[in-house]
């Protein structure tokens, strides 16, 4: 099963196009308020992670996610249970 760092790398990769010039993407980056993702784009981000790692991610984790770190942690938790 992928670990936290692998999830983190993949999230950074997918989020690259959303990063404004001069802004450095890090674990504390806020998906909606900082990077400006819409709810639909958050869903699409999760869909891409699902496809890449061949996992299913329940929507129930969404309220727990606001930063890149939150997402990577939730994914790690999900795949280790």
């Amino acid at each position: 099963m992928p670990d936290y760092d692998e999830f983190l790398d993949r999230i950074y990769e997918i989020l690259k196009p959303f990063t404004k010039k001069g802004v450095i993407l890090n674990e504390g980056s806020e998906l909606v308020t900082e990077l400006g993702l819409t709810s639909l784009q958050v869903m699409e981000l999760i869909e891409q992670i699902e496809d890449h790692f061949d996992i299913s991610v329940p929507l129930n984790i969404l309220p727990e996610i606001s930063t890149v770190q939150d997402l990577a942690r939730q994914l790690e938790k999900l795949t280790n249970t």
Binding site: M43, E47, D54, I55, S56, V57, P58, L59, N60
Partner: peptide, 21 residues
């Protein structure tokens, strides 16, 4: 309940997700 989306109008994606369960 645990809620998982499958890709719109994509029965093969549905099948993949059901098998994972």
């Amino acid at each position: 309940a645990e809620v998982i989306r499958f890709k719109h109008n994509d029965p093969s994606d549905l099948e993949k997700r059901l098998r994972r369960l």
